[in-house]
């Protein structure tokens, strides 16, 4: 069977060849990820500005977040990137069951990530670290409820509680918007993967046609990359 004479069932009418179709999908996906870079870029812009302006507030607010959960999630998410890459690889070499298995592993890891996020968010709600009318970061005259970093004491002394209660809200506004949108991307990714897994199970993919697996892989890795930046920016400010 050669590529041009016999039409592959997955070849759409507007394309001449399978490779043209695949190249189009790859370019389209990358153009979409380009869009995503600038989408998150607006948030990184805001982060950069306010981290410069409100250094002390950002340090204090960042130390109030538990590194452990962030580190755990980083390991989980990079792990899911590996399983995703292996899913694509299995599809490339015609291993249907392995494809399905790796996809399921990816979804499981993604769900673990989201579960950890729920724990973290619940903690923030409980301690009134969510911006808005209920917000309370430092109560004047009281010790903070979180463990201070090495410069924490010094920072608390040189800023009024009132000003910290205002400006740390900017940190948490960005924290929730950034991690929230990241989590939303993961939910969309898991939804996408449910469909892809089902298609893989039905044997729709082969070494000749596995574009949907590859595309969802690209998307998933991108989401991983966003987290690779979010982790140090949100969790690791000035811990020394």
């Amino acid at each position: 069977m050669h590529a041009h004479a016999a039409h592959h069932p997955a070849l759409q009418h507007q394309f001449q060849t399978m490779s043209q179709q695949k190249e189009s999908a790859v370019l389209g996906m990358w153009a979409f990820l380009l869009t995503e870079v600038l989408f998150f870029g607006g948030l990184f812009m805001a982060y950069m500005l306010y981290r410069t302006w409100y250094h002390d507030a950002f340090v204090l607010a960042s130390t109030s977040i538990t590194i452990f959960w962030g580190l755990l999630n980083t390991v989980v998410l990079i792990g899911s990137s590996l399983t995703m890459a292996l899913a694509v690889r299995s599809a490339q070499i015609n291993q249907r069951k392995a494809t399905v298995m790796w996809l399921i592993a990816t979804m499981v890891l993604g769900t673990v990530f989201l579960g950890v996020k729920v724990i973290e968010y619940a903690d923030k709600f409980e301690h009134h670290h969510v911006p808005g009318p209920e917000y309370a970061f430092i109560e004047p005259g009281h010790e903070p409820i979180f463990e201070l970093g090495p410069h924490g004491r010094e920072l608390l002394e040189r800023n009024s509680a009132e000003s910290l209660n205002r400006t740390t809200q900017i940190f948490f506004s960005l924290y929730f918007t950034m991690t929230g949108l990241h989590a939303l991307h993961m939910i969309i990714g898991i939804g996408l993967m449910c469909v892809i897994t089902w298609m893989a199970w039905k044997g729709r993919f082969s070494s000749e046609y596995y574009t949907p697996v590859e595309m969802s892989g690209l998307y998933w890795h991108f989401v991983d990359i966003v987290w690779i930046f979010l982790f140090p920016l949100l969790y690791l400010i000035d811990r020394s």
Binding site: L27, L38, G217
Partner: peptide
């Protein structure tokens, strides 16, 4: 490696670079 850009066309590489180029303009 995971996203296979190593094995993709120059156009894909250009798309990746241009994303960071325009982000750099914004920032």
């Amino acid at each position: 490696y995971f996203m296979h850009v190593k094995y993709q066309s120059r156009l894909t590489k250009l798309v990746v670079v241009s994303g960071f180029f325009f982000l750099a303009i914004l920032l």
